[in-house]
Computed example of a mutant assay.
Amino acid sequence: MNDTSAIPVRKIIHVDMDAFYASVEQRDHPELRGKPLAVGGSSARGVVAAASYEARAFGVHSAMPSVTAKRKCPDLIFVPPRFDVYRAVSQQIREIFAEYTPLIEPLSLDEAYLDVTQNLKGMDIATEIALEIRAKIKQVTGLNASAGISYNKFLAKMASDLNKPNGQAVITPKNGPAFVEALPVNKFHGVGPATAERMRSYGIETGLDLKSKSLAFLQEHFGKSGPYFYGIARGIDERQVRPNRIRKSIGAEDTFVEDIDDLELATAELLPLAEKVWRYCETGGISGKTVTVKIKYADFTQATRSRTSPLPVANVSDVLEAASALLATVYPFRRPVRLLGITLSSLTNEEADEAEPQSQLNLDI
């Protein structure tokens, strides 16, 4: 992993639909167009699943508690999600992708990587392929998509955000390393708030700071993610576009600003994790039978507790109830808790036979 010349130049496109759920609702309900819109529940315990660009202007974003969103935008309109419709539109989009390449790696209903190095249209220029795909998506679905084009997955993902909404950008092999050097680490795909905070504690604010750290340092402080961070700091990402990924779990976790030593406070922190996990279940039309809680203590030791039920969990309350019961089994905590996580596994697709292994699907978060 010394330089980009060691890696065959590939042509990767990352396609990302613009405010997908909200845009579908505005497409199907003309009276909602141009208005601040949130897809999700408006109750005190509701969470925003998606926000229109009009709502984003007020600071509303996905995964935000609905009460907070309403406070930021008093005129916010809430609509319940229609995941069956979103899945149908997503399938239309996948069919368009398949006209260009079989190498499609969906990340969710509204985004995917495409490897168009060798493509079914025989087109040489990836930016032209991206333009065609976006135009076809608009023609078929009436929705806008943005795209990023680059020589690897990481930079294609970063590029797709540069000219949103309804735009595209390219990051070339020549420009990739310099682009990463100037990028704040909290903007890196794959670096969440907790990891960014840890990086800052080591003086890592930008890609250039990250590049200055040795592989040994990054492995010591960031474990198995160390080699990935070492590579992307140099504009290198050797991951292939993988169609037909077989995944087995959905998970969400959070590292707290201050360690928690109280069961009631810790249990309260499980709610947003359960909601995040269940939102992905609804998006993918899946559920699972095994709930696992991960507890990481202040001294970085950790424990996990799992429970498997005969039938898949039916709603977010089931996930939360199981996780809360599992957390209670390790109380009193042997140390204050710095991180909690919930994972749902033994996944089943609602449209498949639950007994068949191939019905398993994973949406890592």
Results as ranks from 00 to 15, higher is better:
residue 280 Y to D: 07
residue 268 A to Q: 15
residue 297 Y to W: 13
residue 266 A to H: 03
residue 315 N to E: 09
residue 319 V to Y: 07
residue 292 T to K: 10
residue 276 K to R: 15
residue 274 A to W: 06
residue 283 T to C: 07
residue 306 S to Y: 05
residue 285 G to Y: 02
residue 273 L to P: 00
residue 281 C to V: 12
residue 309 S to G: 08
residue 315 N to A: 11
residue 293 V to H: 06
residue 286 I to V: 14
residue 317 S to K: 07
residue 304 T to H: 07
residue 286 I to S: 00
residue 318 D to P: 01
residue 316 V to A: 15
residue 291 V to H: 03
residue 296 K to E: 15
residue 268 A to G: 07
residue 269 E to S: 12
residue 288 G to P: 01
residue 297 Y to H: 14
residue 278 W to S: 00
residue 308 T to D: 13
residue 274 A to Q: 03
residue 268 A to N: 12
residue 307 R to P: 06
residue 284 G to L: 07
residue 276 K to Q: 12
residue 311 L to P: 04
residue 328 A to H: 08
residue 266 A to Y: 01
residue 276 K to G: 08
residue 284 G to A: 08
residue 311 L to G: 04
residue 289 K to E: 13
residue 315 N to R: 04
residue 322 A to Y: 05
residue 292 T to V: 11
residue 274 A to Y: 10
residue 278 W to Q: 03
residue 328 A to Q: 12
residue 278 W to V: 07
residue 325 A to T: 10
residue 325 A to P: 06
residue 288 G to Y: 01
residue 315 N to F: 03
residue 301 T to G: 11
residue 273 L to N: 02
residue 321 E to I: 06
residue 273 L to G: 01
residue 285 G to R: 03
residue 296 K to C: 01
residue 319 V to T: 07
residue 298 A to T: 12
residue 265 L to E: 15
residue 326 L to N: 00
residue 272 P to H: 06
residue 285 G to D: 07
residue 271 L to K: 13
residue 314 A to T: 13
residue 313 V to C: 10
residue 313 V to A: 10
residue 278 W to E: 01
residue 269 E to C: 14
residue 279 R to K: 14
residue 295 I to H: 00
residue 320 L to F: 10
residue 321 E to S: 05
residue 305 R to F: 12
residue 271 L to P: 01
residue 275 E to N: 10
residue 292 T to F: 04
residue 267 T to I: 15
residue 309 S to C: 09
residue 298 A to W: 08
residue 323 A to K: 04
residue 309 S to V: 10
residue 307 R to S: 14
